[in-house]
Write a protein that binds this DNA or RNA. Structure first.
Lengths: 209, 209
DNA sequence: TCCGGGGCTGAACATCCGTTCAGTACGTTG
DNA sequence: CAACGTACTGAACGGATGTTCAGCCCCGGA
């Protein structure tokens, strides 16, 4: 539960409004005046609190990364290996459309910060794959160099392509059930494609991902 | 071979300059003045030829879709099923960084035109998959609803993520050999993951990857 | 009570934007 | 030759943008 807008500080209200508008329209297409109007405040207050529009962006980035970090930290590390990954993506992507939109915007920039964020996701995928291979015995000629990238493409692809993908679907892409089904399909594809093994346990977990 | 810039009409030079700058910086971040300067012409000429900046965008879109269409039309339809898809993506994405950048920009918009373009790619993936399943006998519990999307995510993911992916790699992502290796890995993943069958031919090309 | 400082504002600044317009140069047509 | 349409330009317009600044209100401390 989040505090109502009027309960927040001016600074926080500006940051929340910026997060919303940046996620919706992108950074360049969002004016400082629009952010201030969305927050019900004066444009000059943006400069007062953040120094510049770029400073506002930095503050929003920091906030988003913090939320992302807590969401990633709360995932149980002892889950059914790759299942945890689906749970993470479901928790992050499914829950908050604003966060989703902002992450989409960030991932399609070419700033060093964006590359670093992707690097973190990449290393996460790598360790997840190593655990998977150690437990299941990797397929001999599976190309392990590209496997983490394939994993990330399967997870991040729908996030990045949401605006063009959704009009070609009849259900909301990030509805929990739809997301669960897609995530399960991804797990099956990776399990069979990289390990050559069918999933051992029940065919698919209810939420699983 | 393409004609040198000075040989082209003013209209064509403006369109080419716009394609270059739109691909590099995005539409919103590119001013009509910048396009005119890149083409060595007057900003007013943009309005004279295209009516508005949006008209210029439409002309560029049309041109890009035409080039894309010819590239897709030239692919042999009798190839080794999914191999043709890798060839197509290699031909389109590997060859022209500008076209690549522009396609990336288009795919992350949410205009109806972008959704329609994705729809075309989706139907292409669907027919490709149907051919694949008819030839190889699909795996019983493969989620055929998501399979085409997975296919597209694997192909378009690196295109969309290039700016954040490249800094985490030591080779140019769209170097022909690297791209061939990645494409082969995608084919193996899809073959094994969706069909449960190992590839019949040679295990993998030397560079693989 | 006075005072200082931070949150906050309205008005203004220079700059860039997309677009308009009058007008020039030029090849073609009559 | 004159008339014309087309490619093209320089200068300007109104408006939006990021940013600055002097000054307001109001609360806590002296």
């Amino acid at each position: 539960m989040r505090a109502s807008p009027s309960d927040l500080t001016g600074r926080a209200r500006l940051r929340e409004a910026a997060l919303r508008l940046f996620a919706e329209r992108g950074f360049a297409a969002t004016s400082a005046r629009a952010v201030a109007a969305e927050a019900g405040l004066s444009p000059a207050l943006v400069m007062h609190h953040f120094g510049s529009k770029e400073g506002l962006r930095a503050a929003v980035d920091e906030e988003v990364l913090a939320r992302l970090g807590t969401a990633l930290r709360d995932v149980p590390a002892d889950g059914d290996l790759m299942g945890s990954l689906g749970e993470v993506s479901a928790r992050i992507f499914g829950a908050d459309p604003v966060l989703r939109g902002y992450l989409r915007r960030v991932l399609q920039e070419d700033s060093p910060a964006s590359a670093a964020l992707f690097g973190r996701l990449l290393s996460g995928a790598r360790t997840e794959l190593e655990r998977l291979l150690a437990a299941g015995g990797g397929h001999p000629d599976a190309d392990l160099r590209w496997a983490p990238f394939q994993m990330l493409c399967l997870i991040l692809g729908p996030l990045l392509l949401e605006p063009v993908m959704q009009p070609n679907l009849d259900q909301p892409m990030f509805d929990p059930q739809v997301l669960a089904g897609r995530s399960a399909a991804n797990q099956r594809l990776l399990r069979r494609g990289l390990l050559g093994a069918d999933p051992p346990g029940p065919v698919e977990p209810p939420v699983g991902g």
